[in-house]
Design a protein around this nucleic acid. Structure first.
Length: 417
RNA sequence: GUGGGCGUGGCCAAGUGGUUAAGGCGCCAGGUUGUGGCCCUGGAGAUCGAGGGUUCAAAUCCCUUCGCCCACCCCA
């Protein structure tokens, strides 16, 4: 038997109401904040991701779904949400519209990893991007949106961590400091960190290895070494967060996985969750648009994993089930009643009443059971008598009573019951 | 990529060498001649993940393989 590829899922929405709830909540919230939806292609030029995410990152090193198409071009399944939006921004000349521009997306993201709880090869992200806004109030807006999402979903005990990783100029000075700090201890570090030391020293900070953690927590802090503009941006952001009553923890070791981030980075994690816990993460990326060939344009945004949000809803047993549509099921007695049944059901649908026709060849009893299994509130029964008199027998499944009325009186019955 | 756990009908699950592989849920049918939910009765559905080996005999022991889950790495 052919099975679905590892790390993918078949979403049976009838069995999991959380998904639709999360999607619609996210979209509604984005719209409330003035964001409009963008859908980018499922695959892009491999180059787009390689150049923006950074070739020393794990995503580029080993997690991308890259393939050659028949034209010989290298394509990659969307590995991340921000770069494609920025590419589209440039491709459609959106920088010529009035800025800032607010965009949101809901789309699948693909990474070749070993699946585990909260981690899949195909997962889905809700994300927002605020392009062309430089001030720290933009950072605060995006974080506030994220915060509202968590609240709207009813998730509790979610912590917000923030940090600043400066801009290229002050960061390069900081990295020198960091290297000096680590100089004497390199040999005691884990193998990954030895590698990080030469390839991407900033990543030394978020090593989870016990020994490395101790060393990392004593390292000089980026926020103590910001340049003037970055420092001012950082302080204002913290002030704005305070004024809108958003609680946060400063995490000096928060650095994030993509190379394009500048200044603000942030993550939302459930309390006590493991390393797969992050439900939302993002940051500022002021150099990204320029790097893609546009004129310097600041940007900030976040991505949030729908699967992880749903996982947390399930864990907390939060009930998100909306009211199921009240189905009307039309039963019929024998094939000769089918045409009339079809007439009735077409009428129901024309009145926007959700309805299904029970299958022919089954006893009324079986059709009744089927209706009950669909949790129909109303059942319409049609037999020879009803056909001949152009009547319908309407049964209230909750009360258990029924009456036979004229077909043309059906609207009134349904409106008043 | 590394480490651990697990694979028995659609789902849950007993069974740890010996005749036709329990049970529950669900499904189908009957008990009601045109009527559900409760109850009763009956039925369908499993080459015990796959392949090989040991044995008179394997779901059960051994090997291989595939798949799922969990953890590490990293990320949403």
């Amino acid at each position: 038997m052919i099975q679905r590829p590892r790390g993918t899922s078949d979403f049976l929405h009838m069995d999991n109401p959380h998904w639709a709830f999360v999607e619609s909540s996210a979209a509604a919230l984005a719209q409330l904040y003035g964001y409009s939806r963008i859908d980018t292609p499922t695959f892009e030029s491999a180059d787009l991701f390689v150049r923006t995410i950074g070739d020393s990152t794990d995503i580029v090193q080993k997690e991308m779904y890259t393939f050659e198409d028949k034209g010989g071009g290298l394509l990659t399944l969307r590995a991340e949400g921000t770069a494609p939006v920025c590419r589209a921004f440039l491709e459609h000349g959106l920088h010529n519209r009035s800025l800032p521009l607010r965009l949101y997306y809901l789309c699948p993201v693909f990474r070749y990893e070993r699946p585990q709880s909260g981690r899949y090869r195909e997962h889905h992200q809700f994300g927002v991007e605020l392009l062309g806004a430089e001030g720290p109030e933009a950072d605060a807006e995006v974080i506030a949106l994220a915060c509202d999402l968590v609240k709207k979903l009813g998730l509790e005990d979610i912590e917000l961590f923030v940090n600043s990783i400066g801009d290229p100029s002050c960061r390069s000075e900081y990295l020198i400091l960091l290297s000096e700090y680590y100089q004497g201890t390199i040999n005691t570090l884990c193998n990954d960190c030895k590698d990080r030391f030469t390839r991407n020293p900033l990543r030394l900070l978020d090593c989870k290895n016990e020994h490395c953690s101790v060393i990392a927590s004593g390292a000089p802090k980026m926020v103590d070494n910001l340049c003037g503009p970055c420092e001012s941006h950082w302080q204002k952001l913290l002030m704005y967060l305070n004024t809108v009553n958003i609680a946060y923890d400063i995490d000096h070791r928060l650095v994030r996985g993509m190379d394009y981030y500048t200044r603000t980075v942030f993550e939302f994690k459930p309390k006590g969750s493991g390393s797969q816990g992050t439900i939302l993460g993002g940051g500022r990326y002021d150099g990204l648009i320029e790097q893609l060939g546009g004129k310097p344009t600041p940007g900030i945004g976040f991505g949030s994993g729908l699967e992880r949000l749903v996982l947390n809803l399930e864990k907390k047993q939060i009930n998100t089930a909306g009211r199921a549509p009240e189905l009307v099921v039309v039963l019929h007695h024998g094939d000769e009643c089918v045409p009339y049944a079809m007439e009735v059901i077409n009428h129901l649908r024309s009145k926007e009443i959700p309805s299904v026709l029970a299958s022919s060849g089954k006893s009324i009893k079986a059709q009744m059971r089927y209706a009950a299994s669909l949790q129909a509130k109303t059942v319409i029964i049609l037999g020879e008598d009803e056909v001949n008199s152009r009547c319908v027998t309407v049964k209230d499944m909750l009360e258990g009573n029924q009456e036979t009325i004229k077909f043309e009186d059906l609207n009134n019955y349904l409106n008043t019951s």
